[in-house]
């Protein structure tokens, strides 16, 4: 398999920790700050951070159309705030989103920072930090993990969503990054 380049949208938020995992699985890491950076990447991660701040910057830098075009030609993974940007509907508060994945998501639904928590999925440590909750999923959305009845890891076609952060743990490359890389390979085989 050829070596892939995975972009991480670097407007604001938890960008660099993905480098360890992407490179650990033999792919190349690239920061996407401007629309030119969308050229030459095979997949895009929308990282954790503050979704309201990222939205503001997407508008400020007129990236909306370029990102939509990128989503049409490559797989995308939304982590936490990134998941909020990709959801069909966002609640508390309602806000604009790319509506790429048929889910309804509620921001900060577990509560504030004191309600943030660590967990393990398949023995891999992940963190839910002021995380959103996916309240409903559409027919074409597959749920891969549930926490307390709520989907926390879903996929639909070329989109992957996690409401948790697997990237903060830096001891071994995460299986979630590997899953995303496999999603990219499948996409280009079609």
């Amino acid at each position: 398999m050829k070596s892939l380049t995975i972009g991480v949208l670097a407007l604001q938020g938890c960008v660099l920790p993905h480098k360890f995992h992407i490179e650990g699985h033999g792919a190349c890491f690239k920061e996407v700050r401007a629309k030119e950076d969308l050229d030459g990447i095979d997949g895009l991660i929308l990282p954790g951070g503050e979704s309201s701040s990222m939205l503001k910057l997407i508008r400020e830098f007129s990236l909306e159309e370029d990102l939509k075009a990128a989503f049409a030609r490559m797989p995308v993974w939304g982590v936490c705030a990134g998941a909020i940007l990709l959801a069909k509907q966002v609640e508390s508060p309602r806000q604009w989103s790319f509506a790429l994945c048929d889910i309804t998501i509620e921001r900060n639904a577990y509560g504030r920072q004191l309600d943030s928590f660590n967990a393990t999925i398949d023995n891999y440590p992940v963190a839910f930090i002021r995380a959103p909750i996916i309240r409903s999923v559409g027919q074409d959305v597959e749920t891969h993990a549930l926490f307390k009845e709520h989907p926390v890891w879903v996929k639909s076609d070329t989109v992957m969503i996690t409401t948790f952060h697997p990237e903060l743990y830096q001891e071994r490359p995460s299986s979630f990054h590997l899953e995303f890389i496999q999603l990219i390979h499948q996409f280009y085989k079609r």
């Binding site: 960008v15 920790p17 920072q113 943030s116 930090i129 549930l146 903060l168």
Partner: peptide, 23 residues
């Protein structure tokens, strides 16, 4: 997949929020 809530290190969670504020 199975998820288990753990509380291995609250320092990670504390630093984690700061990571989200970067940039």
């Amino acid at each position: 997949k199975k998820i288990t809530e753990t509380n291995i290190s609250t320092l990670d969670l504390k630093v984690g929020l700061a990571e989200m504020l970067k940039g």
